[in-house]
């Protein structure tokens, strides 16, 4: 995935101002940043959900805005803050995604049942996705993104609201996916997860990429948390105020 000078305004506010990112194939890429840094906006533009005001986005060599069909066919997306077709049950939703991707029905069935079992949702579950817990919703969303075995996964906050056990499961699935040659790009503000998983990271704040590169280079001999705070800035300790607390 390669992004070149992406810009997006919302009304008068500049949400993303000239983001360029290079995600090497086969990397586990973490996009870090505080809330409101423009992570979701950047990823939405990268996968074709939001039209940028300027700049290009390429997925696996295809321009998302000039050759959308080719680009989208190879990518799995887990958007954050977007609803799913949540009046379907989990199995129905997976079947919908598979058929939309043009997969044969038999393959869809086989993979969907397997995913549902691994993610502990179960094929027999009749509950509608709208009634799922937040963690379950993340899991079914991830299953939908994985179903067509894409070469690139773009995940927006995959670990938010996920309990530790499911989180570990998702981590394992993603690590396996990367070791099989896939590329993962995900956004997060949980530094521990990023530090444990990623080979590459980029740090965003105020709509700009402040730093990007292999994790070892970025981190140096410090902790990622120290680097993050230094790059993003902001206050981390209290002074003489709040004495009454």
């Amino acid at each position: 995935m390669s992004l070149r000078g992406l810009v997006k305004h919302f009304d008068t506010r500049l949400a993303v101002s000239g983001v360029s990112l290079d995600v090497p194939a086969g990397s586990f890429f973490g996009l870090l940043g505080p809330n409101g840094a423009g992570k979701t906006t950047t990823l939405s533009m990268a996968v074709g959900l939001l039209r940028p005001d300027a700049g290009q986005a390429e997925l696996l060599g295809y321009d998302v805005w000039r050759a959308p069909a080719e680009a989208k066919a190879l990518v799995g997306v887990l958007p954050d803050g977007m609803r799913m077709f949540d009046r379907l049950s989990g199995p129905e939703l997976l079947a919908y995604h598979g058929l939309l991707r043009g997969m044969p029905a038999a393959t869809v069935d086989q993979r969907a049942v397997e995913l549902l079992d691994v993610l502990e949702i179960g094929n027999g579950n009749r509950t509608l996705v709208v009634d799922y817990s937040a963690g379950m919703k993340k899991k079914i969303g991830l299953a939908c993104a994985l179903l067509h075995a894409p070469r690139l996964l773009v995940l927006d906050e995959p670990f938010e609201a996920v309990d530790p056990v499911s989180g570990a499961l998702i981590r394992d699935i993603l690590q396996r996916y990367v070791s099989g040659g896939g590329t993962v790009v995900f956004s997060s503000h949980v530094l521990e997860v990023v530090e444990r998983l990623c080979t590459h990271v980029a740090i965003m704040s105020d709509g700009v990429v402040r730093m990007q590169g292999p994790l070892t280079e970025i981190r140096g001999d410090r902790t990622l948390s120290d680097v993050f705070v230094q790059v993003v800035g902001g206050r981390v300790a209290t002074g003489s105020e709040l004495a009454w607390l």
Partner: peptide, 28 residues
């Protein structure tokens, strides 16, 4: 509800739906 163990595709589609994108879209 009692668990439903039909395959995912048969759960989404109706018996007469084509097994295609159009079928999935209309069934949804």
């Amino acid at each position: 509800a009692a668990p439903d163990h039909r395959s995912p595709v048969t759960k989404l589609l109706f018996r007469w739906s084509p097994r295609s994108r159009f079928g999935a879209l209309t069934a949804r």
